[in-house]
C-alpha cells in the first residue's frame, strides 16, 4: 500500500481540487505526458459523474477518484481500512459539517475527501493523491 504519510500534495499544474468546471479545460501549465512522469490517466472527465466515484489502477494500487457537485476532484486509496476491502469508490459521496466525505459502503465510516481522515476514528486515515485534468482527461499522480 502507498505510504500512509502521503497526505494529498498538489504538484504544480494539478487542479488542486479546484477548477475543473470546464469539462475541457486548458491546463494552466502545459500538460506533461501521462506516462512515465508519475501521472496516470483515469478516464475522460465527462465520464466521472459528480458525487459518484470510480476506481483506477495507479501504479498497481487501486485508487478511488471522486468529483464533487462543485466540480472539485479528489483521489483516495480505494481500500477501506476498516474492512480491508477495496471498495471506497463505491460509497455514497456527500458532506458532513460542510466537509466533503465518502461513506464506506461496508461499515459506513466517513472519510474526508480532502485529507483521507476517518471522521469516526482520528487514528485512521487513507492515503490521498493529487488529481488534475489534462485535455479533458482526469489523471492521478502517484
Amino acid at each position: 500500500m502507498t505510504a500512509q504519510a502521503d497526505v494529498r500534495q498538489h504538484p504544480s499544474g494539478s487542479t488542486d481540487g479546484a477548477e475543473a468546471k470546464d469539462p475541457h479545460p486548458t491546463p494552466s501549465t502545459p500538460a506533461e505526458p501521462s506516462s512515465g512522469t508519475g501521472w496516470t490517466e483515469v478516464c475522460p472527465l465527462e465520464k466521472l459523474q459528480p458525487e459518484r466515484g470510480v476506481c483506477a489502477l495507479v501504479g498497481g494500487e487501486p485508487v478511488a477518484v471522486f468529483r464533487t457537485h462543485d466540480d472539485r476532484l479528489f483521489a483516495l486509496h480505494n481500500v477501506d481500512p476498516f474492512s480491508n476491502a477495496s471498495v471506497l469508490s463505491r460509497g455514497v459521496v456527500g458532506d458532513l459539517g460542510g466537509t466533503p466525505v465518502v461513506a464506506s459502503p461496508l461499515y459506513k465510516q466517513h472519510f474526508a475527501l480532502e485529507s483521507g481522515q476517518a471522521l469516526e476514528d482520528e487514528t485512521v486515515r487513507v492515503a490521498t493523491y493529487p488529481v488534475r485534468v489534462v485535455n479533458g482527461t482526469v489523471e492521478v499522480g502517484a
Binding site: S83, V87, V92
Partner: peptide, 19 residues
C-alpha cells in the same frame, strides 16, 4: 438518481465483506 443509491442498489447486488 444513480448518485443517491447505496452501493448495493448502485450495483444491483449485495456487497459482501471482501467487496
Amino acid at each position: 438518481s444513480a448518485t443517491l443509491q447505496d452501493t448495493n442498489d448502485h450495483f444491483l447486488a449485495n456487497m459482501q465483506r471482501n467487496g
